Every structure is written in C-alpha cells, then in structure tokens.
Amino acid sequence: MPDGGARRTGIALTERQRIAWLRLIRSDNVGPATFRDLINHCGSAENALAMLPELSARGGATRAIRIATAEEAERELETARRQGARFVGIGEPDYPPALRQIDGAPPLLAVKGNLSAATRPSVGIVGSRNASIAGAKFAAMVARDCGRAGYVVTSGLARGIDTAAHRASLETGTIAVLAGGLDQPYPPENLPLLDEITDGPGLAVSEMPFGWEPRARDFPRRNRLIAGISLGTVVVEAAERSGSLITARIAADFGRLVFAVPGSPLDPRCHGTNGLLKQGAIVTTGSSDVIEALAPLSRLDLFSGPVVEEPEKTGGNMLPPDDDDRATIASALGPTPVEVDDIIRHTGLPPPSVYLILLELDLAGRLHRHVGGLVSLAMEK
C-alpha cells in the first residue's frame, strides 16, 4: 500500500506574495514556464511585475502589455474564499508533489475540498465520453480497487469513463481536474458530482480563473494536469482522435506509466486504446495490473522536485542584450519547434543572454512554447 502522503514539505506564501503571484500569472503572455523564468531573472514576482513593460518592449511588443492589478487579484482571492476554495503555490505543502516534477507546472492552483488528497499518490483514469456499459463498469472497478489500495483517483469530470471513475472513488478520495474555473464545471450536469467530491475526501483543482468558461483549447491543458498529478494513467476506452490519447501521450512525455485496456477491433471506442498497446502501453485486464506496476513508484520521494522560489536577492542585474543579439536569435528561430540548447549552439551567444531574449520575445507575444521545453517563433499575422 502506498504512503498516504503523510510527509508534507514546503514553505507557505505570504498574502502579499500570493497576490503578486496571482497578478503575474494572470498578466498577458505569462504562462507557467514564463512565470518561472521571470522569477529566476527578476528575483520575485513583485520585481517581475515592475519589469514586464520594459521586457516586453525590448522583445518587440507593438502595444503595452496588460498587467493584472492588485485589485483584480484580491477580488479573485475573495471569490475563492466565498466559494470555500483557495490558491496553493507550487512550493507550498498542499501542492500535488508529482505535479511539481513536470515542465510547465502551474505556479498556482485553485483548489477546493480535502487538501490531503493532493499529497497522496494518484492514478489517473480517463476514457470515452460515450462509454460502453462494459467500459464504465471496468473503469469503476479499477477506481474502486485503486482507492482501496490507497491511491487517489484523478480524472477530468467528463461524461462516461471519467464520471464512472469519480463515482467509484468518492469514499476513498478522487481529484476532479477542471478545464474552466472551479465555478464553471463541464459538463454542467456533473455539478452535483463535483459537490459530492469536494464535500467528501476528494478535491477539485483548476489553473484557470474563477468565472472562466472552458473552451476547446483548455481541455489539453487540463489533460496535462491529470497526467502530471498521476503516477500513471489508465485509458479505458478511447477513439483514435480523443482527448484521452492526448492525456496518455502527455503522461508518457512526463515519464509516467500508461495503461491501456484492450477492446474489440470492431468498436471505434477501442481503436485508440488498442493503438496505445501497439506503442508499448501496459496491457490492463484487471486492477492488479495497475496496482502492482504503480507500487514501486508510490514509494519514491516526490517532495524534492523543482519548485518556483523567490530568491532574497534582487534579480534583473544582468545587462540587457543588444539589438544585434536579438536579431540573431529571431533569425535563428522559425515556426518549427527547437530546443533552447540548439539555439545556444547555433548562435554562440551566452546562455543567460539567450534565455533573456527568449523571455523578452515571449512577453512580446512573439514566441510559442511547446511540450519538452521547445520554442518556436510566432508567425506575424
């Protein structure tokens, strides 16, 4: 049986830091990776907020960058409090430890429910929204057995397999990852299920602002959180072009285990899972396949992973690169994603200069970041 997440480490943010962090992540062109780079360069979120206009202008921004105000951050914190939720920072004790390990982990998570669920070992269970009766029963069986074995079950609150997994693990603990704000569950019909999760030993999490209605592009972001929170992800039924396959691919990219339940070649809902098996996913015909494979991972120390820290020193002391260096980087980039190390080797520029120029381009809206730390130039519209 896995350790129940008794060891909780980390340093709590002050209220002032939490407001600054929320302002920074809610500002234009600041995603999780950019947030981390800003903290590393500027020394703190407050310093980063002050430097955003200069950095984005140096990157070639054509208009002033929108910076979230303290009032906006305070209103969102108050909204969370009214709804019984809170924001947890990546370096705090209640942040999911496995999620800390991934590239681009959210610096802040909105959470509601039993926070102890966040620090317990987790298994993700995902699959078709249009699930078969057999698929839903199998997902429920795996969720129930994994819950009894000490794992929290993580899924996306969708119809079908997700719903079956959540319901089967209500008593032992389940994490619902939302694509929209915590107050905007999708589908709306699962709001009563979400209430059951948060009223019990489970938890709801989201990286999106309160009031945010989920759009199609938000679901892959949600899927990355499911894969990041979980030590392994079980795919029960999935068509060839399904979000569950995105979750499985992301889990594999994170170095997590991927389990797939074989199905009939005649059922389109099984084409994706059968394809995963051809690619090396773990054949899953019973709960024991999952529990036995996860056992060694659940004993690993996940609490020593990378976190976003605010150094006591003031950052931003490095001299800005010159325009020739910026032009060199911009000309080396294109629409094809490349590794930062390749940019450094190709240009011969010092790594700190390369990272700073990429940060400037990012804040100016001229850079795309991709899974695995790859970057590409945003094409002019």
Results as ranks from 00 to 15, higher is better:
residue 345 R to H: 13
residue 132 S to C: 08
residue 318 M to T: 14
residue 366 R to C: 07
residue 259 F to P: 01
residue 293 A to D: 03
residue 268 P to S: 02
residue 307 V to P: 08
residue 222 R to H: 11
residue 311 P to D: 04
residue 73 A to Y: 02
residue 10 G to C: 07
residue 70 A to Q: 13
residue 171 E to S: 08
residue 92 E to P: 11
residue 241 R to T: 10
residue 224 R to C: 03
residue 32 P to N: 09
residue 312 E to P: 08
residue 33 A to Q: 14
residue 287 S to W: 01
residue 199 D to K: 12
residue 333 L to Q: 05
residue 56 S to P: 11
residue 61 A to H: 11
residue 49 L to A: 13
residue 326 R to V: 09
residue 345 R to W: 09
residue 363 L to P: 15
residue 44 S to A: 11
residue 176 A to V: 01
residue 343 I to W: 13
residue 134 A to S: 07
residue 187 P to Y: 01
residue 156 G to I: 06
residue 251 A to E: 11
residue 298 S to K: 14
residue 191 L to E: 12
residue 48 A to L: 02
residue 139 A to D: 02
residue 129 R to I: 06
residue 86 R to Y: 04
residue 335 P to S: 15
residue 112 K to S: 10
residue 69 T to P: 08
residue 177 V to S: 09
residue 85 A to W: 10
residue 275 G to L: 08
residue 357 I to P: 14
residue 355 Y to H: 15
residue 250 I to V: 13
residue 220 P to C: 07
residue 86 R to V: 12
residue 214 P to M: 10
residue 172 T to P: 03
residue 32 P to H: 10
residue 19 I to A: 12
residue 297 L to W: 09
residue 379 M to R: 10
residue 292 E to S: 12
residue 99 L to S: 12
residue 272 G to D: 03
residue 288 S to N: 12
residue 102 I to P: 06
residue 60 G to V: 04
residue 276 L to R: 03
residue 85 A to P: 06
residue 13 L to C: 13
residue 145 D to W: 00
residue 194 L to I: 05
residue 149 A to S: 04
residue 13 L to E: 05
residue 302 L to F: 14
residue 167 R to I: 09
residue 151 Y to N: 04
residue 246 I to A: 10
residue 155 S to F: 03
residue 43 G to N: 09
residue 377 L to D: 04
residue 46 E to K: 11
residue 75 R to V: 15
residue 156 G to F: 00
residue 159 R to Y: 09
residue 75 R to L: 12
residue 83 Q to L: 14
residue 349 L to D: 02
residue 21 W to H: 14
residue 178 L to T: 05
residue 272 G to E: 05
residue 122 S to T: 02
residue 27 S to A: 10
residue 181 G to N: 02
residue 62 T to D: 10
residue 101 Q to K: 13
residue 323 D to R: 15
residue 246 I to R: 14
residue 151 Y to Q: 04
residue 297 L to M: 12
residue 334 G to V: 07
residue 138 F to Q: 04
residue 291 I to N: 06
residue 115 L to S: 09
residue 241 R to F: 11
residue 11 I to A: 15
residue 318 M to A: 15
residue 64 A to Y: 00
residue 260 A to Y: 00
residue 149 A to C: 03
residue 117 A to D: 01
residue 344 I to V: 14
residue 150 G to N: 02
residue 122 S to Q: 13
residue 246 I to C: 08
residue 306 P to Y: 09
residue 49 L to Y: 05
